[in-house]
Design a protein around this nucleic acid. Structure first.
Lengths: 292, 292
DNA sequence: AAACTGTCTATTGTAGATAAAAGACAAAAA
DNA sequence: TTTTTGTCTTTTATCTACAATAGACAGTTT
């Protein structure tokens, strides 16, 4: 098969949710805009909805016949894009499995393992190489440089440089800048989660990313903004596979964030820098602990 | 054809040079180590040398029959790897040609233009995307963000952060670290070129890269070291296509380097920082001037 | 006129195939 | 014993093909 129709399936599932919420479906271009896909895909979705007798469809007349049932949805496994599958599979191998630094990575073997073509694996590795965890020997294999202590230290060193710079820019943002409103929303969420930490501590990971990305964005520097992709992927998988003391760690981090946010809102560069340093230091410690 | 045999041709040419210098050829594995290719390629080279009656070859006996002539070499155009060809072709389009920011980049069209398959173009674009000049719309085209004033400012902002940090590390390197010897060699080359600036000013570009890479390497941070790839590619093509006042510009930069090097050798962090800032400021100005 | 639909074309994402290049292993030579 | 060669297998780099998806345009509907 040349291309998985995951875009279609994923959009179809979202369309079913939409169908459950709204009484009628809008026009094809509008639906395309809502779901973020082309009209070609929208028409494929509508055709499928008709087949399942969920709607009748004749030109612009789209009548809902019944509410969608669980059986109408495509299984979630089928809606993951191939590159997501490869990424997860690869990260599991190198973070969870006992992958030694210096190990060779073999495109063909990886592809066979994941059950996919070599092209996609190769492209994934090229994209992934910018994270500094692997390196290519031309005409030969890739080398795993490994998720080592050095890696973590180098990563956090740059992170600190960039975030300090971003925090300085943030403090200088004009009063009416939308980032302040977003910061307030993020702050409120912190209070919400802290208020029910035992049940909601798992939401921290996502909130953490949202907070730091907001900060980095204020640097208006694409290299700084893009660098957060590396941090995000590392922390994402780190959170996923290192659950020891998650509740305490996240609770502490939330408190640190709140102090940091307060300093930002006070437009106090010195205090912000201090709070930033404190938080990043403890984030680094957490990361380092998970390594050995 | 599945794969160009550029590795073979390029290694063959280098082997001819070797043949001109040394009387006899070493063993296959040794030759492989010298030329940096596998024994498979070495044996292909030996076979070709025999065909051309340059040597006789029977097991480990390799006798040189005659000196290589220009006609024995493969044309240099045939020794460029495909990714180099794509890179040059692409950079010419976006830097030299009137490529507007926001322009769409089309894999198929690029491939047709360059006369290559789409896979290679695609892989090139993925690799190139880390330089922040292009961006992918999934399932659709790439967008050229353009070599704009903003790009140059963002690039140099990070460059300054990284190089200041590197300069600080450099000053702290122990006396016996090999970087000091390399710095002396680089300093001597500066004097050489300045002594004959009218004829040799073109050598600056390469020396510049060598100097800054040496500095960045002392950060011992892969992200800082890797970032220099972006600077290098930008300046490489910048030097190539903007020759106005090259002699004066390079002369000035060489002087700045010498002051910078002197400060480093004096182990004086304050003076080094000052010299670093001064040099990077003028490098930024040069780059910005070439943009509009 | 503005937006929508039907239809068609072009491009992307991915698999599969193949020559080039790397690399493994045993037998041979030093 | 160590290195080298002969032979064979595996992997990479690249092309081509094709379904999925995006996108263009003209005719139709509001």
């Amino acid at each position: 098969m040349a291309k998985q129709n995951t875009v279609f399936k994923e959009a179809f599932n979202r369309c079913l949710k939409l169908l459950a919420e709204t009484a009628a479906l809008p026009s094809e271009p509008e639906l395309g805009a809502v779901l973020g896909v082309s009209r070609t895909t929208i028409r494929a979705i509508l055709t499928r909805l008709e087949e399942l007798k969920l709607i009748t469809w004749d030109k612009r007349a789209k009548a809902v016949l019944r509410q969608p049932e669980p059986a109408d949805y495509y299984p979630v496994e089928e809606t993951d894009s191939l590159s997501d599958i490869i990424e997860r599979s690869f990260m599991r191998r190198i973070l969870a499995g006992g992958a030694e630094p210096g190990m060779q990575i073999n495109e063909l073997e990886l592809a066979r393992d994941i059950g996919t073509g070599t092209t996609s694996v190769r492209e994934f590795l090229i994209r992934f190489s910018r994270f500094g965890l692997i390196e290519k020997r031309p005409n030969s294999h890739w080398i795993l440089k490994g998720f080592t202590r050095e890696f973590a230290l180098e990563l956090t060193e740059v992170r600190e440089m960039f975030e300090l710079r971003s925090a300085h820019s943030f403090v200088a943002l004009p009063e009416e800048h939308p980032a302040w409103a977003e910061l307030s929303r993020i702050e409120a969420l912190h209070h919400d989660i802290l208020g029910d930490i035992d049940n909601r501590y798992k939401e921290f990971s996502e909130l953490d990313e949202r907070f730091h990305r907001l900060l980095h964005k204020s640097s208006s520097n694409r290299f700084i903004v893009d660098f957060y992709d590396i941090i995000a992927i590392v922390f994402h998988y780190h959170y996923q596979w290192n659950k020891a003391n998650a509740r305490e760690r996240n609770g502490r981090a939330l408190e640190e964030h709140l102090a940091y946010i307060a300093a930002l809102r006070a437009r106090d560069p010195v205090k912000a820098e201090e709070a930033c340093r404190r938080h990043l230091r403890s984030a680094r410690e957490t990361l380092l602990q998970s390594i050995q």
